[in-house]
Simulated assay, not measured.
Amino acid sequence: MPGPKDLDPSSSPRALLGAELRHAREKSGLSQEELGARLFVSGSFIGQLESGTRRMQPEYARLLDDVLGTEDFFRRNCGVSAKSSYPTHFAEAVEAESRAVSIKQYTPTLIPGLLQSSGYARALFRAYEPTAPKEKVDESVADRIARGRLLDHPTTPMLWTVLDEAALRRKVSSPQVMAEALRHIAALVRRHRIIMQVLPFSAGEVGSLVSGIKLMYFSDSAPFAYVEGVGMGHLTDDPPTVTRHELTFDLVRAGALSPRESLVLIESVAQDYEHGEPHP
């Protein structure tokens, strides 16, 4: 694994906490593994805190202050680094996503957040919270589109997505919204910015047809796997769990159309939406 990268403590509260944690740990003469053992976590977990990949939770801040003799520094400051416009169960995953050098994702029923157009995202948020004020929906849409700007960088992260055909065929809002959403994905493919495959209905029972999978890889820490449900999500770096999700992703990818065939299908379905309803 590459050595830890130097963080600019002024770049964010989390970078400051990470830099201070590394300084306090080294001052105490502890390795990441030794400090992790005292907190009943892995050495890689400590490395993720130091690199800013993982959010520092209050329970770990308290233990770090006790073990490292930093009085209440981490307790006082971890709340600032935890502020986010995203729900608690999703915030850490979004932050990890922003630091990843490579992301692999499969989604079974909907276009994933990083690839959504504004109209598509707005329809989903309105369906999820039908009584929410317009201002709240507007804010959620803005946050989602801001996430997608991660792909404005020409090469990083490398995003490999497998999209179930159901996500193409499920009409969200209107044919016009769906056409725009699929054209947006096709444009990213044609810019060679993402690798996209479609898992067709004809593939049958492959891999994971129940829940989505997101795998995130980093230059200086272990990979994460993230799975979510309604109002909940779980982010883990447990090696056996990550390995199991990697196998599942590989099985799904093996059953998918090639990238070239997938692009043809996406653009064909988009054209159908532009001229009416696509046939299932």
Rank of each mutant, 00 (worst) to 15 (best):
E180H: 06
E95D: 15
V230P: 15
R190P: 04
R169C: 07
D164C: 01
L215G: 02
D220W: 12
Q105G: 13
D143R: 06
A256E: 03
A37C: 11
S28L: 10
L182K: 01
M56G: 01
D66C: 08
V41H: 03
R193I: 03
D143L: 08
R144P: 00
G69E: 02
R149I: 02
I103W: 03
H234R: 15
T156P: 03
P175K: 05
V67Q: 04
E59M: 11
I213Q: 05
A186S: 07
T155Y: 10
S102H: 09
V206D: 04
Q32E: 08
T161I: 08
L115D: 01
C78N: 02
R55L: 09
L199P: 02
D237E: 15
R244V: 13
Q48I: 07
I46N: 02
T248E: 13
S221V: 14
R191N: 15
A187I: 06
P13F: 02
R147D: 02
I266N: 01
Q105L: 13
L159T: 00
K134N: 09
G69W: 03
R22P: 00
P280C: 14
R122L: 10
R169D: 05
S44K: 09
E246A: 08
Y217A: 10
G119P: 06
S31V: 07
L64A: 04
H184W: 07
V189D: 06
G18T: 06
G79Y: 07
S208N: 15
S117E: 13
T161Y: 04
R244L: 14
I111F: 03
K136P: 03
V177D: 00
L265C: 06
S118V: 05
